[in-house]
Computed example of a mutant assay.
Amino acid sequence: MQTQAPGRTENCQIGVFAAYSSTAGRALVDRELHLPNSWTSDPDRCRAAKIP
């Protein structure tokens, strides 16, 4: 992640995870990776990063 100017962030990836937890244990239920539109709109960059 690079900060270009105050309040502006570039090259940021956000991972969202859902997990279940109880006294018996815990488990990862689901996950999703969110990428900036500038990444997903560039097919060469997606290919290089192995993003489908």
Rank of each mutant, 00 (worst) to 15 (best):
K50R: 14
H34F: 13
L35M: 02
G7R: 06
T40N: 02
Q2E: 06
D30F: 01
M1T: 13
A48Q: 11
I14M: 03
V29T: 14
E10H: 07
Q13M: 14
S41E: 01
A27C: 09
S22W: 12
G7M: 11
Q13P: 02
S38I: 10
V29R: 03
I14E: 14
S21K: 07
T3Q: 14
C12V: 14
H34K: 09
V29M: 06
P6L: 07
H34R: 06
A18V: 06
A27Y: 05
S41L: 12
T9P: 00
S41H: 04
P52G: 10
C46Q: 04
S38A: 14
P43D: 07
E32R: 09
S22R: 08
M1C: 00
E10G: 01
S41R: 07
P6D: 08
S22A: 08
T3H: 06
V29L: 13
Y20H: 06
M1N: 09
V29S: 11
H34I: 12
T9R: 01
R31D: 12
L28S: 09
T3C: 01
R31L: 03
D42P: 00
G7N: 10
P36V: 04
R31K: 05
G15H: 03
V16N: 00
A18P: 00
N11K: 12
N11E: 04
I14K: 04
V16W: 05
Q13H: 13
A48W: 13
S38K: 03
Q13L: 13
H34T: 02
G15Q: 12
D44T: 10
S22N: 15
G7K: 00
T40H: 05
D42C: 03
I51T: 11
A19G: 06
L35H: 02
W39I: 15
S21P: 01
E10W: 12
A24G: 04
R45I: 15
L28Q: 11
R47C: 06
H34P: 01
Q2R: 09
R45M: 14
L33R: 02
A27I: 08
V16H: 08
A24N: 10
D44F: 09
H34A: 08
A19D: 07
R45K: 10
V29N: 08
Q2V: 11
A19E: 04
I14S: 03
R45P: 00
